[in-house]
Amino acid sequence: MGADFVMMGRYFARFDQAAGAKLPTRDGFVKEYWGEGSNRARNWQRCGQGGQGLVFEGGVDGYVPYAGELNEGLALTVAKLGTTLVSCGSATLPEFRSTAPLTMVSDQGFQESHANVTLQDTPTAVS
Rank of each mutant, 00 (worst) to 15 (best):
G109Y: 03
R97W: 02
E32G: 15
K31H: 09
A3T: 06
G82M: 11
L93F: 15
G9A: 10
E112N: 14
Q111D: 12
T77I: 02
A67K: 05
T92M: 04
M1V: 00
T122E: 15
D121W: 04
G62W: 08
T25Q: 05
A115W: 06
Q108S: 12
Q52G: 05
P65N: 10
K31E: 05
Y63A: 05
R42M: 13
Q111C: 10
G20E: 06
K31L: 07
F15C: 07
D27C: 01
S98M: 14
T84M: 13
W34I: 01
E72M: 11
Q111W: 08
V86P: 01
V30N: 03
A91Q: 15
V117H: 01
V86Y: 02
N116K: 05
D61F: 12
L70F: 12
Y63E: 05
M8A: 10
G50V: 01
C47D: 11
T122A: 15
L23M: 11
F56N: 00
G9R: 05
G89Y: 05
A67Y: 01
F15D: 08
A67I: 01
S90L: 06
T118Q: 12
L76E: 15
G50T: 01
Q17A: 12
G35A: 14
N43S: 14
T99K: 13
G89W: 04
F110V: 02
S98K: 15
S87H: 07
E57I: 00
L54R: 07
E57Y: 00
A75Q: 13
V105R: 11
E95F: 04
Q111A: 15
G53Q: 07
G2F: 07
D27R: 10
F12Y: 15
W34N: 12
M7L: 06
C47W: 12
E69V: 08
G62T: 03
F15K: 03
P123L: 11
E57W: 00
N39T: 14
G58N: 03
A19W: 14
Q45V: 09
A115H: 11
L119A: 13
Y11M: 09
A13Q: 06
L23Q: 08
A13S: 15
C47E: 12
L70D: 02
